[in-house]
Simulated assay, not measured.
Amino acid sequence: MNATVNVVLFKSKTLADGSHPLMIRICKDNKKKYKSLGISIQPQFWDFEKNKPKRNCPNKDNIQTIISEKTKEYSEQIIEFKTINKDYTVSSLIEKVDTPITNNTVLQLFNNEIQRLKQENRLKTASTYKELLVSMIDFNKHLDIYFSEINIVWLRQYEAFLRKKGLSDNSLGVRFRTLRAIYNKAIELNIVKQEYYPFKVYKVSKLHKETVKRAIQKSDIEAIINYSADNEHARLAIDIFYFSYLSGGINFTDIALLTSKNIIDNRLIYNRKKTKKLIKLPLQEEALKLIDKYTNSTNIYLFPILSQFHKTEQQRANRVHKVLAIINKRLKDIGKELNIPIDLTTYVARHSFATVLKRSGVNTSIISESLGHSSEKVTQIYLDSFENSQIDEAMKNLL
Results as ranks from 00 to 15, higher is better:
L290Q: 09
I79L: 14
L398C: 10
Q64D: 12
A354T: 05
H208L: 06
L283M: 15
E69I: 06
P21I: 11
K124S: 14
L357Q: 11
L9E: 09
I114R: 11
F48S: 15
L207C: 05
L383K: 03
H142Q: 12
K332W: 00
F252M: 01
A317N: 12
V153W: 08
S370L: 09
N62A: 10
A3V: 04
E73D: 15
A234M: 08
E286I: 03
N2A: 08
N104I: 01
P198D: 13
K293R: 13
R316E: 10
E286V: 00
A349K: 05
R267Y: 02
I300L: 13
R175M: 13
I255T: 02
K289L: 15
F353S: 07
N296F: 04
E69N: 11
N59Q: 13
Q217S: 15
I216M: 05
M395A: 03
P21M: 05
I367K: 06
N62V: 05
L107C: 07
Y227S: 00
I84N: 10
K396F: 04
N397W: 09
L288W: 11
Q115Y: 08
N59T: 00
P100S: 07
I250H: 11
I327S: 00
E210V: 10
Y301N: 01
V362L: 11
V8M: 04
Y34A: 02
N339V: 00
D343V: 04
A126I: 05
G38Y: 05
Q314W: 08
